[in-house]
Amino acid sequence: MNEVRIGIIGVGNMGTSHAKNIIAGKVPGAKLTALCDSDPKRLEAFSEQKHFSDAQELIGSGEIDAVIIATPHYPHTTLGIAALEAGLHTLVEKPISVHKADCERLIAAHQNKNLVFAAMFNQRTDPRYVKLRELITSGQLGRINRINWIITDWFRTAAYYASGGWRATWGGEGGGVLLNQCPHQLDLMQWLFGMPTEVRSYCQIGRFHDIEVEDDVTTYLKYENGATGVFITTTGEAPGTNRLEVAAEQGKVVIEGEGIQWTRNEKQTTEFSNETKGGFDKPPVWDIKIPTSGFGEQHIGIMKNFVDAILNGAELIAPAAEGIHSVELANAMLYSSFTDSTLKLPLDGAAYEAHLKKLIAESTHKKKTVETGPADLSGSFSN
């Protein structure tokens, strides 16, 4: 094989963007041969590809070697399983599933199959986070003591939430800001720092919008080594902030905007504290600015890596099996808030699935939808 025939299921904002990038030749070795969407109007712009209205027909058509699933959240599981069982290499948009139990079902479908199975965690291509991970894994930062991520620049309007009946509902999306906008940051949290051992979260339902899911979240995290973390997010705050601060033995790292600011202790914090004779002394520091260029290849980078893995056996940037961790974090945050308790991880996936089904069954929220203007293709189908 020297070319991968790709099909896309779900031709919304993100699916359209993926299609245009492949057609434009931005993903070497990839050829877009088919698309599927229940709305035929979304397919009209792609006259040279085969069109399908039924995803199962596309999966079994023989027209593709690989599939990108860019539908709303719940079908990620069922379509992902169907694609893998049909022998197709599969790239799933985030989140890979709505809840942990479905993640486990999807991941199980990939077991013992010689297929490439990836997730669209495009923020893993951002050089700021790649460099931070290098600083952590190499031991240059020493022990991590505290993590604080304020990610409140996900501002969304009432018109945004009214643009689709599936948006911001338990039955359509399975959650709000945690399941839609923040899978990227939750994935990076576990990719960089590992999974916490305890979660205590406060999720406000419809604080800023007329929706039945969370649009404002504050969470406290505890890690095995004693480190603590705070994760704050909302879609109701403008202009908002995106600031990641990491306090470690070898100083403090801040990512806010381009580049990385590392205030590096000349001597590790605990070592200095134990050796100094002064009660108010502080370790001398170096102010280090680590420049980074741009924000990486993002979605195109993940697709290029996906195709390279199929054709040449390249190591995946974002294996889909790792997608369970960000979903578990989102589920745990919601479940902690609903049960007004501190949860120990790993999360009981079956218990959370039952809770989510109860929320869906008991929902009385009346969703209002309106026509909106042209989609911003820089966003995600699920965003």
Results as ranks from 00 to 15, higher is better:
R264G: 08
I150Q: 13
K357W: 09
L35E: 00
L35S: 03
V213L: 08
A318T: 12
S38C: 08
D308T: 09
W191A: 12
D126L: 01
I22P: 02
E371V: 12
L334M: 14
T263L: 15
N114D: 15
H110M: 09
A19P: 01
W262E: 03
S341A: 14
L106D: 01
E328P: 08
G15S: 06
D376Y: 09
G226L: 09
A109S: 15
G172S: 05
L91F: 09
F193Q: 07
N312D: 10
L58I: 08
V116M: 06
N2P: 05
I81G: 00
P127H: 00
T137R: 13
N312C: 09
T364E: 12
Y74N: 00
F193P: 07
P183T: 07
S163Y: 04
T218K: 11
A351C: 05
Q49L: 09
G240K: 02
Y223L: 10
Y202H: 15
D153Y: 04
Q49H: 02
G60K: 15
M195G: 04
G257V: 02
N305G: 03
C103H: 03
K282T: 14
V285G: 01
A162V: 01
E322M: 11
L91P: 01
L329N: 00
V199I: 15
S326H: 10
N148R: 14
W166C: 04
F272V: 08
P319C: 03
G25W: 10
F193R: 04
I211V: 15
Y335H: 08
F46T: 03
M1T: 13
R156F: 04
T137P: 00
N2F: 06
E63F: 11
